[in-house]
Simulated scan of single mutants.
Amino acid sequence: MFSVGERDSIRERLLGLAEGDPAVVGAALTGSHAVDGGDRWSDIDLVFGVDGPLDSTMHRWTELLYRDFAAVHHWDLPSGSAVYRVFLLPDMLEVDIGFAPAAEFGPHGPSWRTVFGSPAAAEEDPPPARRSLVGLGWHHALHAWICIQRRRWWQAEQWISALRGQVLALACVRLGHPASYAKGAHLLPPEVTAPLHAALVCALNEAELTRALSAATDALIGELALADPALADRLAVILSDLRVAAPTPDKRGV
């Protein structure tokens, strides 16, 4: 595992290289280091403002990460006109570098600290649409139930886990916490998270998966009831068949 000193040294080297790159007209720290300095486990999150085509600059920086920092793998996460290239370095250090057109180099939330360059005016990313979160919630519940009927235990477990995530996201939106990737889940009060303990799948068999799905569906309805009781009532009727415990454990399960 990387040390704090190694991580900080690599971050400073990358920022120095960025300042010497004519195509990089701005750089910023993002993530936890931009807010509270991060902790022992924080990775490196940077954003570069790029003058000219992103592709050529990304290609040069990718070669640099592999050649000078021994990158093991990378993948891309597009975000609007920007691309976040995510690298894995030795000792499990993750380096996320966002490449944004110079005109769009600027913060989209509080996790931003400019190192050099002139960022555009801040633009807050909107929270996830509540309607979509609700829709994904009932979608995941329905598909988990279907997978149980088809005896596809692993796929059912995946959908139940995804349903739990939607309940957490809905609660985060309601209470004003970050909703993506469960970033605000640790801020939720126990009365919100406690019902989800029962939605953890402990074994891959029909009885256990149905029990966990029932608990996750109850948690979804309970969360909806706090913001839209009428919708919660309508969905509770539709989803009632998903919340009936299976009669007998399937001994063939894992």
Results as ranks from 00 to 15, higher is better:
Arg234Met: 08
Ala100Asp: 02
Ala144Glu: 10
Leu65His: 03
Arg13Trp: 10
Pro22Thr: 05
Asp228Ser: 15
Ala227Arg: 12
His73Thr: 15
Ala102His: 05
Leu54His: 00
Ala156Ser: 05
Cys147Ile: 06
His140Asn: 14
Arg67Gln: 07
His59Val: 13
Ala194Thr: 12
Ile148Val: 13
Ala162Glu: 12
Asn205Trp: 08
Arg252Ile: 09
Glu124Val: 14
Arg113Pro: 05
Ser118Arg: 05
Ala219Gln: 01
Arg60Trp: 06
Pro53Ser: 11
His177Ala: 05
Val95Asp: 02
Ile238Arg: 15
His33Lys: 14
Gly176Ser: 11
Glu208Pro: 08
Arg130Gly: 11
Gly135Pro: 09
Ala28Ser: 10
Thr210Leu: 02
Ala219Gly: 01
Leu64Gln: 13
Gly109Ala: 08
Trp153Phe: 14
Asp55Pro: 05
Val25Leu: 06
Ala102Glu: 08
Leu93Val: 01
His186Ala: 10
Ala194Lys: 14
Ser81Gln: 15
Val24Glu: 00
Pro247Ser: 05
Gly52Val: 00
Asp76Arg: 09
Gly49Phe: 03
Gly184Met: 09
Leu64Trp: 10
Pro127Asn: 05
Asp96Val: 10
His197Val: 15
Asp55Thr: 09
His73Ser: 11
His177Val: 08
Leu235Trp: 00
Gly222Phe: 04
Leu168Ser: 10
Ile146Leu: 14
Leu187Ile: 11
Ser240Phe: 04
Leu54Asp: 03
Ala18Gly: 01
Ala120Asn: 01
Trp145Phe: 06
Leu15His: 02
Leu17Arg: 12
Leu15Ile: 13
Asp43Arg: 00
Leu170Ile: 06
Gly80Leu: 00
Phe105Asp: 06
Arg151Phe: 06
Trp145Gly: 06
Gly165Glu: 13
Arg40Ser: 10
Gly222Val: 02
Pro53Thr: 09
Ser132Met: 14
Ala225Ser: 10
Ile10Tyr: 10
Pro119Phe: 00
Ala171Cys: 07
Trp112Gln: 01
Ile146Lys: 15
Leu220Glu: 00
Asp43Trp: 11
Ala103Ile: 02
Phe99Ser: 00
Lys251Phe: 14
Asp250Tyr: 03
Ile44Gln: 07
Leu239Ala: 08
Gly98Ala: 10
Thr114Ala: 14
Ala230Glu: 13
Met58Gln: 15
Glu123Ser: 15
Leu209Ala: 01
Ala82Asp: 09
Cys147Gly: 12
Pro107Val: 10
Arg130Phe: 15
Asp55Leu: 11
Gly16Ala: 07
Leu226His: 07
Thr217Glu: 07
Ala212Thr: 07
Leu163Arg: 03
Glu157Gln: 15
Ser161Asp: 14
Ile148Leu: 12
Lys183Ser: 10
Arg174Phe: 10
Glu191Gln: 11
Ala227Ile: 15
Trp61Gln: 09
Ala18Pro: 13
Thr57Met: 00
Val86Pro: 03
His139Gln: 11
Pro195Gln: 05
Trp41Gly: 09
Asp21Gly: 05
Arg11Cys: 13
Ser81Asp: 15
Ala100Gly: 01
Ala71Glu: 07
Val244Glu: 03
Ser240Val: 07
Pro53Cys: 04
Met92Ile: 08
Asp125Leu: 15
Leu226Cys: 11
Asp36Arg: 02
Leu175Val: 12
Asp96Ile: 06
Leu239Gly: 01
Leu17Gln: 11
Thr30Leu: 08
Thr114Pro: 13
Glu206Trp: 08
Asp36Trp: 09
Leu77Val: 11
Ser111Asp: 13
Val95Ile: 06
Leu168Gln: 04
Val86Met: 15
Arg85Thr: 02
Pro128Tyr: 03
